[in-house]
């Protein structure tokens, strides 16, 4: 056995000793961690691929075909998109109707949710009851709500026209009048404002009280405290509700399907309803897929624009003005 130098001994230990084990251990640990992380995410990832990503890809391919569900799809290239953009006036009409609905409904819902939250953030009697009362309608949704509002809007026996009649106002025909049907849907959409109200309430309670106290000491009125302290601190939540509200409003379907079927005279023909009609009533799955992608891109562009310009009015806690 030949004598080993100190350097050789250190080198040998580093290659095979605990340090080497540590380097190999670090790499092995990282791989093990990565594997464990991937395994944890795997069920969601598989679900996403099977139920969202995969169907989205399939829909994209279908949008370039003509498919009636009964015969194999036939490749038609850009024909569906050509029809959609150039030949089908109902596409633009339904997009306009849907956008009008979103423009009216979303800001109203944001404002009303905020107002309710501010009111229900006060120290009043039966506060929990009132919070429950305003939140409860948002738990009920879908077809039962649409049927309920069909009755409320009935020109003859409906609650709304009945109440208007008590004060001598002859109510409109609501769902039967092309000029008022979208307004009816907007009113109906405020039924679910309790959901956003709860989110605002949670945010309101997160506002540092010392800011409000300092403003009060400085003589700021309640209105000024609301406008200059509360609302700016709430802008991230307002932004969140604005984005989700617009995405939801542009996909409105159930009320139009259940209550008016797009009438009268296509005045309430929402884009999603038109998409549904093409897919399941006209057997034009390929064209309906093209419509779906157009809606997706429309919503994506609007959402991008919202994010793009959010810096001008959304203030995140800790962010300096110069960060905008």
């Amino acid at each position: 056995m030949h004598p080993v130098s100190k350097a050789e001994a250190v080198s040998a230990v580093q290659r095979s000793g605990p340090a080497a084990l540590t380097r190999r251990g670090k790499g092995g640990m990282r791989r093990a961690e990565a594997l464990a992380g991937m395994l944890c995410v795997a069920p969601w990832a598989l679900g996403f691929l099977l139920f969202t990503g995969g169907p989205m890809l399939f829909s994209l391919v279908l949008s370039f075909t003509r498919w009636n569900l009964l015969s194999p799809p036939k490749w038609v290239g850009l024909s569906n998109f050509q029809t959609l953009f150039v030949k089908d006036p109902l596409v633009w009409h339904s997009l306009l109707v849907t956008t009008l609905y979103a423009v009216l409904a979303v800001p109203l819902a944001v404002a009303l949710g905020l107002l309710l939250a501010v009111l229900l953030n006060q120290r009043i009697r039966f506060l929990s009851f009132f919070r429950m009362l305003f939140y409860l309608p948002s738990v009920v949704s879908g077809v039962p709500v649409a049927l309920l509002w069909s009755w409320i809007f009935s020109p003859n026996v409906g609650l709304l026209d009945g109440l208007l009649g008590l004060v001598g106002i002859r109510g409109p025909a609501w769902l039967f009048d092309p000029h008022t049907v979208i307004i009816a849907f907007v009113i109906m959409s405020l039924w679910g404002v309790g959901g956003s109200m709860v989110i605002y309430l949670a945010s309101l309670q997160g506002i540092p009280p010392h800011l409000l106290e300092a403003a009060t000491i400085d003589g700021a009125s309640a209105w000024r405290r609301l406008v200059h302290i509360t609302v700016p601190l709430l802008t991230p939540i307002i932004f969140f509700n604005l984005v989700t509200g617009i995405i939801g409003a542009l996909q409105m379907f159930v009320p139009a399907y259940v209550m008016t079927q797009g009438g009268p005279n296509n005045a309430s023909l929402m884009f999603m309803l038109y998409l549904f009609e093409n897919a399941f009533q006209y057997f034009r799955m390929g064209y309906a897929s093209a419509l779906a992608w157009v809606l997706f891109l429309y919503v994506a562009v609007l959402t991008f624009l919202l994010f793009r310009f959010s810096g001008r009015w959304v203030y995140y806690e800790g962010m300096l003005k110069s960060d905008n």
Partner: peptide, 17 residues
């Protein structure tokens, strides 16, 4: 804990499949 989570994920994956 990591091993437990990983096993649970594999089991969940199996159920999904």
């Amino acid at each position: 804990r990591r091993g437990l989570l990983a096993s649970a994920s594999v089991a969940g994956l199996g159920l999904v499949l």
